[in-house]
Nucleic acid binder design. Structure first.
Length: 192
DNA sequence: GATTTGATTCTCT
DNA sequence: GAGAATCAAATCC
């Protein structure tokens, strides 16, 4: 299927293709404005899959198009979309986006006092706005029957910027964060 | 078995 | 800008 083809290949090539794509979870839909690429075993020290398969990252080793949702800092969920062919264990972290549907529900989940632009500005915020948690781990976002779905743009955006990833201790210099310039929903860069 | 760390965010100073 | 919240996985005895 064409959509699956677009999620295969080197993760740093796949990641920008997700910019402008829309992730829908029930009533809430988010247009992605910022993503980050993480490669597979032995290729990327910042990736969860770097040291091989564990219970947590097992989804990353599966086929492309599945959600990898993990729990971190004892309180936050972050969502990735697995890319590459089965066994590659690369994934793209959904870092930020713009709520384009289900605004009321997103506000309810994130708090009434949160500015609209901050609803999904940051990976844990994005997952929260979509209502994603551990139960969404492993869902196939290309499956029309899935509660969480990904809609790619018919054409990938041509204009995007790339820079260092946020919050990683290792491989900080690798410019694998991609974002849409000028978007107010892009999260601020923070060096770890 | 114990300790450290983390793809973070919120709150208070 | 610093500190807290809070837990699973990774890393050390």
């Amino acid at each position: 299927m064409a959509r699956l083809d677009r999620l295969t290949g080197p993760v740093e090539k796949v990641a920008p293709r997700l910019l402008g794509a829309v992730v829908r979870s029930g009533a809430v839909a988010i247009r992605l404005t910022e993503v980050e690429a993480y490669a597979g075993v032995g290729e990327d020290e910042a990736s969860h899959s770097h040291r091989g398969r564990t219970k947590r990252n097992a989804i990353m080793f599966g086929p492309a198009g599945h959600l990898y949702v993990y729990f971190t800092y004892g309180m936050h969920w972050c969502a990735n979309i697995v890319t590459g062919v089965e066994g590659t264990a690369s994934a793209v972290l959904l870092r930020a986006g713009e709520v384009v549907d289900g605004l009321e529900l997103a506000i309810e989940r994130r708090g009434a006092r949160v500015p609209e632009k901050d609803l999904a500005r940051g990976p844990a915020r994005l997952a929260s706005a979509l209502g994603l948690d551990g139960s969404a781990n492993g869902l196939n976002v290309l499956d029309p029957a899935s509660p969480v779905r990904l809609t790619l743009r018919s054409r990938a955006v041509k204009e995007f910027e790339a820079g260092p990833r946020v919050g990683v201790a290792k491989e900080a210099e690798r410019p694998w964060r991609f974002w849409l310039p000028g978007e107010p929903t892009v999260s601020p860069y923070r060096r770890r």
